[in-house]
Design a protein around this nucleic acid. Structure first.
Length: 846
DNA sequence: GTGATACCTG
DNA sequence: CAGGTATCAC
């Protein structure tokens, strides 16, 4: 609304300005121009309509213009001297009415507008007034007249009116600061007796004159006359616009005048021009004066016709409205109908009166009605009253805008009063019926709305858990895992997660999850779990079991292994997160002091989770445990409510698409210590893994930007340490007197290797591939040579080495692709104890 | 502008 | 190991 208002306001202003300007330009065009202008602006139209509507009445019935009216009109009217405008003829009366109406419109506009009399209407009025008053003075004079209400000095239309006057006018205008509010000056034609026609003629003439002058001016731009426009003040702008301005300010002027600028802007751009114009005008005017007058008359008549038509139109509409109004009552109660009818007629009759007086009259009538209505009201059922009011409102709604205002007021006021006691009973029934209907309608609407709101966010409760309950068949797994075990297709889950169900719903539904396995039952709704068999299948390598939630599956291998497969999703989605939560795991068994993160900030959470993870790792390597960072969170609630998942973190929905290609495995929200360990081991094979590779080998992690970045960062850090060690040992070798890189070698016994192994394979439970030793040796030599060559002076001297090393990456054994690779590898080592088995798994053993 | 990387710092 | 920043390539 505000915008609209402001806009409208601006528009109005603009329009107004424009109009004003237009007036000035055309000046003389008055009637026609005015009409056009009026039609041009919707606002004006609306007002005009209202005015006309009221005027309509006056025209049809009485044409008396109460002095009150004038007084009411204040700014505009008063100046005129109200009574002054006595209508001698029908035409005159009409014109007066219109004038009043227009005045009103003006008053409205004035209030809004910076400039008082700028409105077209006001100008029109002025013109009319001017005619009456001076009938003859040229526009210029009129202007002056404005300044001095009393003045109206130069009534002489005298075309010839000399320049002096004109100039004066300018100066005067500037001097006279006729309050803009009062455009009336014009309006207040002294010669009230003069006929509208005359006035119109005058106006037309002036307008035409002005136009002609403008044209002439434009054509004959005589430089000779240049008068300093020292005194021009725009307050006159109105005047100028109509008269002097018209004359003085040529089109250019109008152009120059900034619409927005207040009067000042209105000042004719070039005083010189004005002067010129003024001087010339007289001549010009004389020439075409006759023609102008004729045209003016015609225009005016046309305008009147149009206005009449409009009024008639409105009257028709009013009748229609009345009919409708009565119909309503007819349907309800005849007796009342009559009353209402009468009332309405009375009102209408009042309306027909002059608008101003009408309003008063209406008020009076209303007073009477009110009294009556009050009495009746006491008997009236409130509901009844409301119903009636509603009906009326509806009716009104159907009607055209312009006219309604009045009617509404009337009808409303009457409505109550109109209700008769007889109607009371029936009315009650009607009211009841309406109430019921309304209630039912409202109920439906509410239900609909509720449904709409409830559904979108996430499918009803059950849907929320769909991932779990949906039959496998419907969601074929990508990796070909046994569908039966894949109730939790990662991808599906992800999508499902996107929509966050209402926590309450989730809880509510939890118990009844259909088709939920035992795990599921225990588990949280969103938790995705695999059955033991599923776990095995899910892993490429096969073998690991442990995807179960520790609590649920304490015996799972995972528990024993450092790696716990993540299979559990957080049941409670955080409302703010647009993302699903997979709770990584099981750590949750409550083993972790983990914190619950209710914080919506996913980013922070992610970091936090990571940190926690890291800490946890270092702190306690919970044997089983959490693979994902989020692990910590779940902890607080045994249920695994791990809000931690919240961490969907960085997770952009986009990232969802990055989900690992291996749906078979459970996807975790974050990286766990085990992932770190795995990454370290992978470093023995690849120093520069691509993001795709990482996704491949960390298929159990839901990849998103954060995860990817983190993994990359891990490897970056690994490299950093690696190269630091290489440089360190290279320099050490140099210091030790090593002369050639050939002398350098990296063996499992060397200090360098131990340092590296300690860093990447602290537990030393992993057999470092020989290939790594080779790469390490190459790297060491590169550093050695570079340093020896003094390349280290170059800040980027290591880049060359990096290039070499990055090409030495070897393939990472498939086993690493398994989420449970650590379990497998370590398990084999620890449980089986056979290194050979591990090597075998890694493919290192033939 | 973004992502990847290197480098530095804590 | 993570955070931050700078650089480079796309």
């Amino acid at each position: 609304m505000p915008d609209h208002d402001s806009d409208s306001f601006l528009n109005r202003q603009t329009k107004r300005r424009r109009v004003d300007i237009g007036v000035k330009r055309t000046v003389g065009s008055t009637a026609s121009s005015t009409v056009a202008a009026v039609t041009a602006t919707t606002d004006n139209i609306a007002r005009a309509k209202a005015a006309i509507f009221s005027a309509m009445n006056s025209l049809s019935s009485h044409s008396h213009h109460g002095s009150d009216t004038d007084s009411m009109e204040c700014s505009v009217v008063q100046p005129h001297g109200g009574p002054g405008v006595v209508s001698a003829s029908d035409n005159e009366s009409k014109s007066n009415v219109l004038r009043k109406l227009l005045k009103r419109a003006n008053s409205y506009e004035d209030a809004m507008m910076p400039f008082p009399g700028t409105t077209i209407i006001s100008q029109l009025l002025k013109n009319n007034m001017a005619k009456n008053g001076g009938g003859h003075d040229r526009g210029e004079r009129g202007d002056r007249g404005d300044r001095g209400d009393a003045g109206f000095p130069g009534s002489g239309l005298s075309n010839a009116s000399p320049d002096a006057p004109q100039e004066d006018a300018c100066s005067n205008s500037s001097q006279d600061s006729t309050p803009p509010e009062c455009m009336s000056p014009f309006g207040r034609p002294h010669g009230l007796a003069t006929f509208d026609i005359e006035r119109l003629n005058d106006e037309h003439m002036r307008a035409k004159r002005a136009r002609v002058e403008n044209i002439i001016r434009g054509m004959s731009h005589s430089p000779s006359v240049v008068i300093p426009a020292a005194s021009r003040h725009e307050r006159n702008h109105e005047i100028d616009g109509e008269r002097e301005t018209e004359l003085d300010c040529p089109p250019p002027q109008s152009q120059q005048q900034p619409p927005s600028s207040p009067r000042g802007g209105e000042v004719c751009g070039g005083s010189s021009r004005e002067n010129k114009r003024k001087q010339r005008l007289p001549q010009q005017q004389q020439q075409s004066f006759t023609q102008l007058v004729c045209q003016r008359k015609e225009q005016k008549q046309e305008e009147r016709r149009q206005l009449k038509l409009q009024l008639e139109d409105m009257q028709k509409q009013l009748r229609q409205l009345q009919e409708k109004f009565f119909q309503i009552y007819d349907s309800t109660d005849d007796s009342e109908h009559n009353d209402l009818h009468n009332d309405l007629h009375n009102d209408i009759g009042n309306m027909s009166e002059d608008s101003p007086s009408r309003s008063d009259a209406a008020a009076d009538d209303r007073g009477g009605d009110d009294l009556r209505s009050d009495n009746e009201m006491s008997d009236l059922d409130p509901g009844h009253f409301l119903d009636r009011a509603r009906a009326l409102l509806q009716e009104q709604a159907l009607l055209a805008d312009g006219e309604k205002p009045r009617r509404e007021g009337i009808s409303r006021s009457k409505a109550p009063g109109g209700l008769s006691s007889s109607m009371h009973a029936e009315g009650k029934q009607l009211a009841e019926t309406l109430k019921q209907e309304l209630n039912s309608a409202m109920t439906q609407v509410v239900d609909t709305v509720v449904k709409v709101f409830a559904k979108p966010p996430r499918p009803p409760p059950q849907q929320a858990f769909h991932p779990l309950s949906i039959p496998p068949e419907r969601f074929p797994t990508v990796n070909g895992d046994n569908p039966n075990f894949h109730t939790t297709n990662p991808r599906l889950q992800c999508f499902g997660d996107v929509i966050i169900p209402n926590p309450l719903d989730s809880f509510a539904n939890m118990p009844g999850m259909p088709g939920a396995t035992n795990d599921q039952t225990e588990a949280l709704p969103l938790v995705v779990r695999k059955t033991p068999s599923e776990h095995h299948q899910s892993s490429a390598v096969g073998a690991q079991g442990g995807h179960h939630h520790p609590a649920l599956h304490p015996s799972s291998l995972s528990a024993s292994m450092g790696f716990s497969p993540p299979s559990f999703r957080h049941p409670f989605p955080l409302p703010l997160m647009g993302y699903p939560f997979q709770s990584p795991l099981g750590a949750p068994t409550g083993g972790y002091p983990g914190k619950e993160h209710s914080s919506p900030d996913s980013m922070d959470l992610s970091r936090e989770t990571t940190s926690l993870r890291t800490k946890m790792t270092s702190g306690h390597h919970l044997g089983h445990h959490h693979r994902s960072c989020s692990p910590a969170h779940p902890g607080s609630t045994a249920e695994g409510l791990s809000l931690s998942l919240i961490k969907s973190e960085c997770g952009d929905l986009q990232d969802m698409s990055d989900i690992s290609p291996y749906p078979g495995s459970n996807i975790q929200e974050g990286l766990s210590p085990n992932h770190l360990k795995k990454a370290k081991l992978m470093f023995f094979y690849t120093r520069y893994p691509s993001s795709n590779m990482l996704k491949m080998f960390f298929s159990d992690v839901k990849f998103n930007r954060c995860i990817t970045s983190q993994l990359i960062k891990w490897f970056s850090n690994f490299r950093e340490f690696y190269y630091i060690q290489m440089e360190k040992f290279a320099r050490q070798a140099i210091n030790d007197g090593v002369t050639g890189s050939e002398e350098l070698s990296v063996s499992r016994d060397c200090e360098l290797f131990r340092a590296l192994n300690m860093h990447y394979n602290k537990a030393n439970d992993f057999e470092v591939p020989d290939r790594f030793l080779e790469v390490a040796e190459v790297t060491l030599r590169e550093f050695f040579n570079a340093i020896v060559a003094g390349k280290d002076v170059d800040p980027s001297w290591k880049k060359a080495i990096y290039k070499v090393i990055c090409k030495l990456d070897s393939e990472v054994p498939e086993v690493f692709k398994s989420p449970n690779c650590l379990q497998e590898l370590l398990h084999d080592v620890s449980q089986i104890g056979g290194r050979s088995s591990i090597l075998h798994n890694l493919g290192w053993v033939p």
